[in-house]
């Protein structure tokens, strides 16, 4: 009788050990993934809170150049470094691509740092006069302006 009890106890003990091992691995992995996600989200939120931009100047030019264009000067008045590639420009709710941009007259840089101004030159159709402008930054902070 003694062998049966200790033998089955040993079997159950080994099973419990294996079970705990599997459960612990799964729990620890999930916990770590969720913790990482929370940290990343907290970082993004902090960045969003620290981002602020303001429109310094908007001009609409119907000048003799082949196409009309809108010139926008936006200043990074927050404390985060923004990416020029992540900036979105909407004119009358139409997403614009292929516009020219310069940060402090530097057209090669991809960085838009605090207290620097970003100049955008957006070509618009000659048939309609643009009325509204929206500039959106990478973290999602945006400004709107009436042209």
């Amino acid at each position: 009788m003694g062998f049966s009890v200790s033998g089955s106890a040993a079997l159950i003990f080994v099973a419990a050990f294996i079970g705990f091992g599997m459960f612990y691995t799964a729990t620890a992995n999930s916990f770590e993934q969720i913790n990482d996600a929370r940290d990343a989200q907290a970082d993004t939120t902090l960045e969003q809170q620290n981002t602020d931009i303001t429109v310094r100047d908007v001009t609409y030019n119907t000048a003799p150049s082949p196409d009309d264009y809108v010139n926008v000067t936006v200043e990074n008045v927050g404390s985060t470094e923004l990416s020029v590639a992540d900036v979105d420009v909407l004119i009358d709710n139409e997403y614009r691509t292929g516009y020219r941009s310069a940060v402090e007259d530097d057209t090669s840089t991809e960085l838009w740092l605090p207290q620097e101004t970003l100049e955008l030159n957006v070509t618009v159709s000659e048939s309609t006069t643009p009325t509204r402008l929206k500039v959106v930054t990478g973290p999602g902070v945006s400004v709107t302006e009436v042209i």
Binding site: A37, T44, L90, T144
Partner: peptide
């Protein structure tokens, strides 16, 4: 755990004017 972490990581903004 994977689902919850992707839920937490997801954040979108409607940027339409």
């Amino acid at each position: 755990g994977l689902d919850v972490s992707s839920d937490v990581r997801t954040d979108v903004e409607i940027i339409s004017d």
